[in-house]
Structure formats: structure tokens, C-alpha cells
Amino acid sequence: MPLDVETCFRTQRARVYRWAYAMCRRHDDALDVVQDVFLRMLDRRPLLANPAAAIAWLRRVTGRVVIDNWRAESARAARQASHVPTASSADAVEARELADLLHAALESLSEQQRLVLMGKCYDQMTFQQIADELGIAVPTAKTHYLRALSAVRERVRTADPTPDIQAGRTS
């Protein structure tokens, strides 16, 4: 049966947004990701036998699109010497810092590690379900999960709090 991208868009866009927002933590960025993911679906017309296969495909592509967009964004920011992040409050700065740490951690993961993390943290899948979907052994899925969480923990632990955040906390 040929893939109906429009139907898939209507039934799965919220799911894709949810993943994208959990990673990007910016509404507009997440909406861009949704558009980009379904554009890729339209371009590539993947052979997807059932809804579960469609969800697995979307999860993988969403992760890729998020990472691609971050890389494009950092390349753009690097080109613009005057790029200075702006934030209205210490809380916003802290939230942004945390999001950036998460970006760096997620970007450092292998695709399988990222997919295990997404399946576990965003979709509450069991290790068995994740292993079945990715075609890997359950202990491998568990190892990927621990490695992914370790990468996030390392980033958070080694991050230096900025003077702005400290000032915000003391005021």
C-alpha cells in the first residue's frame, strides 16, 4: 500500500512535535522540525508496512533532523560574530543553558544510543520493545541507555555555571 504522507502527517505530527520539543525546547524550532521531517517523508517515500514501522521511521528521522538543524544553526552562529544569546531572566538563561547541555550531549551520541534514549525517556518503551524495534539485543539496549545518560550527566556535571546565572540566584 503506498504511503499517504498527508494522512501520516495528520495522525503523527503531534508525536513528532513532542519528540522535537523535548529535544529543542523551543516551540518554533520544534514546528520547523515537524515540517522538515514530513518533507523528508514526502521526498523519500519510505516503505512502511504498518503504523509501528512509521513511528519508528519518524523517531529516527526526527532525531536526525534535530541534530542537522542544530549543526546548521551553530554554523550560522559561528559565521555571525555578533551572535549573543539574549534572555529575559535568570530562569530563562538557566533553562537555555540546560537545553544547550542537552543538545551537546544528544549530539555526541550514536544514533542507536539516541534512539534508545528517545524510546525510553519520551515514549516509555520497555527495553524489550526498543530492542525489537532496533533489531538489537536487550542488554545492548540497556548499555546504550546507560551510555546516553552518562553523556548527559557528564555535560551537566562539568558545566560551569555562568556569572549571569549566579547573579540571578543571589539576587
Binding site: 504522507v5 502527517f9 512535535y17 514526502l42
Partner: peptide
């Protein structure tokens, strides 16, 4: 959040 989005 995605209700207003149109298909690509």
C-alpha cells in the same frame, strides 16, 4: 501546538 500546521 500543531493543530494549525498544514501538510508539507
Amino acid at each position: 501546538q500543531t493543530a494549525a500546521l498544514t501538510p508539507p
